[in-house]
Design a protein around this nucleic acid. Structure first.
Lengths: 130, 130
DNA sequence: TTATTTGCAAATCCTTTGCACCCAG
DNA sequence: CTGGGTGCAAAGGATTTGCAAATAA
């Protein structure tokens, strides 16, 4: 894979933040920063970077969202009210997944666990006023 | 929600099987059975039925797949070679999810856990010939 | 009756592709 | 130098929408 200017910009943007980005958001952010990069190049670049394991992706609501790869594996808590994405890691859950797979003679290559609901802030916001 | 002929057909198809269906597959199957139903009606009907909790949905590869709602909750094992979808239920994982959520002061409304990999048959098929 | 639902086609959203030109290795 | 990468615009697949006609309650 060739590390071009455009791909470097993608990588830099993603690696310098803790967010999850979709293609549109990346396009908007890069163009705000003055980069010239076509949307097709963004899609192709993200694909290439993911395949090279330089970034990781999760599927949210039918859209791919990318994040830094230089973190330990984790799963996600997504607030359906404000859209915030938090992360968690549970070694117990991971190990139980392996047990489940083994019981089915299934070999896991990957998994995605996403919890949907209300984050702390949005719960508070919905509390009845006393 | 009005239970029209078309929605009854959708419900019957889904309830009479153990599969996961996407909109295209439903359209094909119903038309094969001689039903006349527009694709827009299928999408709208599935939405309505899901909202009424008469069917459930999971997101696979950016596409919604529907299945019967009259089963206990479960998660999925998806074979990336043959596309087969198996199901599992782990009360331990469910309970750990609740613990994780609690630790984050997050209230879970829903979740999706999907394990991707090779099912037993596809593993066997990939074994080197001795 | 009458508020919903349907069917069709057009529209939308996200993503991919074709192709001529460009540039990193 | 040259094969992979880029940009543009057009194509694509899945889903949604507008609207007049049909229908369930």
């Amino acid at each position: 894979m060739r590390l071009t200017q455009q791909r470097t910009a993608l990588l830099q943007l993603i690696n310098s933040s803790d967010r999850h980005w979709d293609a549109e958001q990346i396009a908007a952010s890069l163009s705000r920063e003055g980069h010239k990069i076509g949307i097709a190049t963004i899609y192709r670049g993200l694909q290439a970077l993911e395949q090279a394991a330089l970034i990781t992706a999760i599927q949210i609501d039918g859209r791919k969202h990318y994040e830094r790869a230089d973190k330990q594996h984790h799963d996600h808590l997504i607030c359906t009210a404000c859209g915030t994405i938090a992360e968690f890691y549970s070694p117990e859950i991971e190990s139980l997944q392996l047990q489940v797979a083994e019981a089915h003679q299934f070999s896991i290559a990957d998994h995605q666990l996403t919890l949907y609901g209300l984050c702390r802030d949005c719960r508070v916001a919905k509390e009845p006023i006393p």
